[in-house]
Design a binder for these strands. Structure first.
Lengths: 199, 199
DNA sequence: GCAAGGACTGAATGGTGGTTCACTTCTTGC
DNA sequence: GCAAGAAGTGAACCACCATTCAGTCCTTGC
């Protein structure tokens, strides 16, 4: 009896897995989900198509993980930016700036994560992405309501609606190809009004 | 030389076409876009699959028209309800009530129109759907700003953001199948705040 | 070096469902 | 009634692409 998976092999496997995820993400950022055949991902990752299936049971599983990874990165960036601000108003400004700024930086990826048609199993992952944003925002809103900065409101509903507003305001421009940078200040004003921030 | 398409035939053709669209719409309302194979649509319309292709060059063209028809119906209903109100605040209340009320009435259809994964050609039609809502709302906002009811703002941006907020707030309940009855008043409050309606 | 067993390969497979087309049926004008 | 030509049919076709698997290459422990 020989061969009992060693550390070195485990590391290589894990690296390979990461490379597959990264390749999928790169293709998504370049050509959208539509361009992501398993064969294309495998080629970009430098492996055979069959190898993809040694790491993920189905294509949907692969892309669920891709979405999860990419989404987490986005949410983390937004959370990090907001964490440095003190008031709910400032926190929401940071949310908009970061979210929109990053989306305008990689519009194709943003579109894929937010709105592009994908198969249902992957779509489910998108819901949790939006939910993560909503939870983040709901926290700021609840705190603002608690300390009197914001008027009474249902933080969950406000947060959900704001996520929708943000996404829609970005996807429209993304689809139209028009990335108005003047959009961001306008959006911040809108959101402050919607929260009831006193001027 | 005989046969030169007569009125009676034209009427029959047009009726057949309408029946195909209606069948597609019914299947969408029942099983979503996913259940809409061309064969299924044809069967429900009482024609052969080949006949569908005498009316529409491709499946995408058929569903583009289905989306257009259904969307127009929704937008019209909303516009009709809002037209009976005088102030921007009241008009937007009517928009929310009508939009949300109708969505909760036929959740499967609403989901298909708003958010279900569809092929890209059909997805494009969805953009114009949302755009139609945004244009409608932008009109009310612009009028409200002009007559001083609302504070100065970019009506386009506000309208886009509000469409996103409405859609996002509805998709959750639609997916869950549960229609939170407190959602609509909450949404109206949110939207009034976002518009800057003075309390 | 070697045997055992896992990892990797990529051409072949298979299922799905949109699309076609040779044929049948119907409609029209004479 | 009949010829011309359009509308309707639905089984067969085909493209696409996720998935598989028999064969090959590597890694390991001795």
């Amino acid at each position: 009896m020989a061969y009992r998976s060693t550390e070195r092999v485990k590391a290589r496997l894990s690296a390979s897995r990461e490379r597959i995820i990264a390749a999928a993400l790169e293709i998504m950022a370049g050509h959208g989900y539509a361009g992501c055949s398993v064969a294309a991902v495998a080629e970009r990752a430098g492996v055979a198509t069959g190898t993809v299936y040694r790491h993920f049971p189905t294509k949907a599983d692969l892309f669920a993980e891709v979405f999860r990874t990419a989404s987490q990165r986005e949410v983390d960036a937004v959370a990090r930016a907001a964490a440095q601000r003190a008031t709910a108003a400032a926190q929401m400004s940071a949310v908009v700036e970061t979210f929109a700024g990053r989306a305008l930086q990689s519009p194709r990826l943003a579109y894929a994560l937010l709105a592009e048609p994908v198969d249902p199993a992957v779509d489910a992952e998108r819901l949790t992405f939006r939910r993560a944003y909503a939870d983040l925002i709901a926290g700021y809103v609840a705190a603002g309501v608690a300390n009197g900065e914001l008027p009474p409101q249902d933080p969950e509903l406000t947060a959900t609606a704001l996520v929708g507003a943000l996404a829609e305001a970005m996807v429209g421009p993304l689809a139209a190809g028009v990335a108005g940078p003047g959009t961001i200040p306008g959006l911040i004003m809108f959101i402050h009004r919607a929260l009831g921030v006193s001027p």
